[in-house]
């Protein structure tokens, strides 16, 4: 089966005043549909850079990245935007909801950018809110609900355009242990029942155990790729 993500010989360097600083030094990786991958590594290991490139928010300096069968390096900014909109769902550590918009409008926002009409937007947003157990809050605002609930709204937003891939960057970083477990169960459910591919960045070993596969970065290189096990988290 065609990989959702295929990365070959990926290098990334940032230009600084002191010359280019490498962040990723030759990564090869393929992720098949339906995988649940945890990405770990100390800070500065390049895992954030890696996630930005996976999310089409940044481009590789050298190397090839094929997402859902399309070579990202050949796409222009509008095509990248479309890819982010239709193929990827983002979940961030800081939830990143729009404070001035209702939960329904927050969840429906990706649909605005794919030109879905208002009635359908509303229906699909409410359907997603229901899926994460927040249907009755659709007219509330983000600051009226708890952090765990906000992260569920963010997940609903990530799901609303039926993406192939969910990229979660430290999604439990701002949550307590109990809520973190609930959120991770939501991810696990999505992965198991709907077969959505999930790539999760975390630095907490017990969060990583929700995933099926673990990749570890150190100093811009992939040092481990395999089963999630005590020894490697």
């Amino acid at each position: 089966m065609e990989s959702v993500i295929r990365i070959e010989g990926l290098f990334k360097a940032y230009e600084t005043a002191a010359g280019p600083v490498p962040a990723l030094k030759g990564i090869d990786l393929a992720i098949a549909p339906g995988e649940f991958v945890a990405v770990m590594g100390p800070s500065g290991s390049g895992k954030s850079t890696f996630m930005n490139i996976l999310g089409c928010l940044d481009v590789p300096t050298i190397g090839k990245y094929v997402l859902n069968g399309r070579d990202v390096g050949t796409l222009n900014s509008d095509q990248l935007a479309r890819l982010r909109n239709e193929v990827i769902g983002f979940v961030f550590q800081g939830f990143n909801l729009l404070q001035r918009a209702t939960l329904e409008d927050n969840v429906a926002l990706p649909l605005v950018y794919s030109n879905v009409q208002k009635p359908e937007r509303s229906a699909r947003a409410n359907e997603m809110l229901e899926k994460v157990g927040l249907a009755k809050y659709s007219a509330s605002f983000p600051n009226q609900i708890s952090g765990g609930q906000q992260q569920r709204v963010a997940i609903a937003r990530a799901l609303v355009n039926r993406p192939k891939l969910i990229l979660a960057d430290e999604p439990t970083g701002n949550l307590d242990t109990k809520t973190s477990g609930e959120i991770m169960n939501v991810f696990r459910g999505l992965n198991e029942t709907e077969g959505i591919t999930i790539v999760l960045v975390t630095h907490e070993p017990d969060i990583a155990t929700y995933a099926k596969r673990l990749v570890k970065f150190v100093d811009g290189k992939l040092i481990y790729d395999g089963e999630v096990s005590e020894a490697h988290t």
Partner: peptide, 16 residues
């Protein structure tokens, strides 16, 4: 700026 970042991440084009 952050709001703009969110919008771009979820698929807003430059012209949007």
């Amino acid at each position: 700026t952050r709001e703009i970042g969110i919008r771009i991440a979820i698929g807003a084009r430059q012209r949007d």
